[in-house]
């Protein structure tokens, strides 16, 4: 099946269990994680980006958005999910 990839961006203060919480949520929805990166940005925020393949996901994009927002709230982090096409358009010519 063709891949359909989204970027999940987690922004907030660093703490234990961020990767575990997000990745276990994704696992429950049958979403495969393709890549993970994390960094402390110059403005002091902890940022983790996950590239995930939602082609075989059991839930819709809207449900994923809502689910991740909930997951984020529990950790006091902001989580956004966006289809990778927007990054291709903005950052690659």
């Amino acid at each position: 099946m063709e891949r359909e990839q989204v970027f999940i961006t987690v922004i907030g203060m660093d703490r234990k269990g961020i990767v575990a919480s997000v990745s276990s949520y994704l696992y429950e929805q049958n979403i495969n994680i393709v890549d993970i990166n994390q960094r402390i940005m110059t403005d002091g925020y902890f940022v983790m980006t996950m590239l995930a393949d939602i082609a075989e996901a059991d839930i819709s994009m809207e449900q994923l958005h809502n689910g991740l927002e909930e997951t984020g709230k529990r950790m006091n982090m902001k989580i956004q999910v966006q289809h990778e096409n927007i990054f291709k358009m903005m950052h690659r010519i």
Partner: peptide, 10 residues
């Protein structure tokens, strides 16, 4: 994409 690029858009 780098973390910086994804963070910039987000």
């Amino acid at each position: 994409f780098t973390v910086e690029e994804v963070y910039e858009t987000a």
